[in-house]
Design a binder for these strands. Structure first.
Lengths: 90, 90
DNA sequence: CTTTCATTTAACCTTTTGGTTAAATATAGT
DNA sequence: ACTATATTTAACCAAAAGGTTAAATGAAAG
């Protein structure tokens, strides 16, 4: 919980790319992995960091584990940034 | 340049606290340093990372170096996040 | 021009991060 | 039960991050 875990998760470029991939829709881990020049194990760790931060959710379906984006936790980050900018929000 | 450097700079809690401090107005390095339980050298390094990311600007005034917040680069981060959330923006 | 104060830089150390390969786990198909 | 496929976990490693203390720099004051 908290903005710390969220921003930390966002601070790696591969993890941000994963989120961008998932913007288009849910994907199994293997599909995600294919998009990057690192091992499946490395991607699996990135996924678990994103999941810990609740930026993604996973559901097993047979052999595959599908990942999908969860943007709700980004709200907190937006608010923190807005706060810095001295913006009013309702 | 780029959202990467900005988010990386934001990913440390001390650096975020520094930005929050500066929200209230410009402060010399020493004043900033006083708020944290780490050495001045450590704070100096944090300041240089924030400066590299253009999240703060510094101006020397006599013996002191004043730091002030620059929120303009946060716009890009907001846009990136909004993009993930699939939001329309003008 | 030397001393003092504010700050940064250098050298160093420990922990964290992100990667690898190999082994483990889970499910499906034969 | 065995085999193949998808994914994670374990063990390990190199590089990056964040901290420390000590030395260097810059400006002001004696």
């Amino acid at each position: 919980m908290g903005v710390q875990k969220t921003i930390k998760a966002l601070s790696d470029p591969i993890r941000r790319e994963i989120l961008e991939l998932l913007k288009a829709g849910r994907l199994p881990a293997g599909e995600i992995s294919n998009h990057f020049p690192v091992s499946g194990a490395a991607i699996s760790k990135h996924l678990s960091i994103l999941r810990e931060a609740d930026l993604i959710r996973d559901t097993r379906e047979g052999k595959y584990i599908y990942y999908e984006l969860n943007t709700s936790v980004l709200e907190e980050v937006m608010l923190w940034i807005s706060g810095l900018k001295g913006e009013k929000h309702d």
